[in-house]
Design a protein around this nucleic acid. Structure first.
Lengths: 115, 115
DNA sequence: CGCATATTCAACCAAATGGTTGACGAATTG
DNA sequence: CAATTCGTCAACCATTTGGTTGAATATGCG
C-alpha cells in the first residue's frame, strides 16, 4: 500500500516532525523533553514520534520510565538518493540516470527483476 | 501556515506524483499523456499536476489546447539541502537509486504505470 | 458552424491526518 | 504504600487528501 518513500516523505512533510528531527540532531532526548518547546499536547508529540519511528527516521528505547528518542539519519538516504536523481546539478550523472531509466522503463530490455 | 518544505515533501509523499516526476524526467508531456498509464481519471491526474505545480516541482505551459508539463528539478534543491543536514550522503549513487526505483516501479505497490 | 479533443471545475465522498481530552499502566520517589 | 512522573491509548473532532462523476470551457478541425 505504501512504500518506504511514501512514509519517509510523508513524515518529513510536517513542520513539527522536521523540528523534532532537528532537535534530535543535537542529542538524544526523552519524549517529554522533545515535547517541551511545542505548543501542543504530549499526546500529539507522542503521535508524531510514532510516525517518525514507523518511518525509521528515529528509534525509541525505553530505559526506566523514560523513553529516549534517537535520530536515525540513515533512513533519509533512500529519499535523498531518490531526489538526487532529479537534481540535475551534475550533467554527467543525469546522462547516466536517463540511460538507466530508458532501460528500466522498457519492459523488453529489463532482464532481471530480482525480487 | 505551510512553507516550501511542507509543500515539497507533501508533494513527494504520493507515489502517483513521484511516478509523474519520473516520467517527466524523460521528456515534457501533455496532461493527457501523463494520465494515460494510470488507472485513475484524468481529473485526478490534473489535481496531482496542480499539486506538483504549486510545489514548484513542475511547470505547465499551455500551447494551443494542449498543456505541457515540464520538470523543474531545481525546486528539489531546498529539500535536498535540508536532508543533507542530517548526514553526508554520497553525491549521486546511481546503484542505490536504481534499487529504490525498482521498488517504486514494482507492480503490486500502489498504482503502477508499468502494468 | 458543428463536433471532437484537451483540460479544468464543482460537488461530492471515504479515508487519512493532526489535534484535543481523559483515563490508564508502568516506573520512580517519598 | 501512596503519590508522582512518563508516556500511551481510546474516543472524539475538524480539516485535508485523493479519488469519483458530470458539466463547463477552450481550442482545433472538417
Amino acid at each position: 500500500m505504501s512504500n518506504a518513500l511514501d512514509t519517509t516523505f510523508a513524515a518529513l512533510a510536517d513542520p513539527t516532525r522536521r523540528a523534532i528531527l532537528t532537535m534530535l540532531l543535537e542529542d538524544d532526548m526523552a519524549v517529554t523533553d522533545v515535547a517541551e518547546p511545542f505548543e501542543m499536547s504530549l499526546a500529539a508529540i507522542s503521535k508524531h514520534l510514532g510516525i517518525l519511528t514507523r518511518a525509521g527516521l528515529i528509534s525509541q528505547e525505553k530505559r526506566g520510565r523514560v523513553k529516549w528518542c534517537k535520530l536515525e539519519p540513515d533512513a533519509l538516504r533512500g529519499a535523498s538518493v531518490w531526489m538526487q536523481g532529479f537534481g540535475q546539478f551534475e550533467p554527467v550523472n543525469l546522462d547516466a540516470f536517463e540511460r538507466f531509466l530508458e532501460i528500466e522503463l522498457d519492459p523488453g530490455t529489463a532482464e532481471d527483476p530480482a525480487t
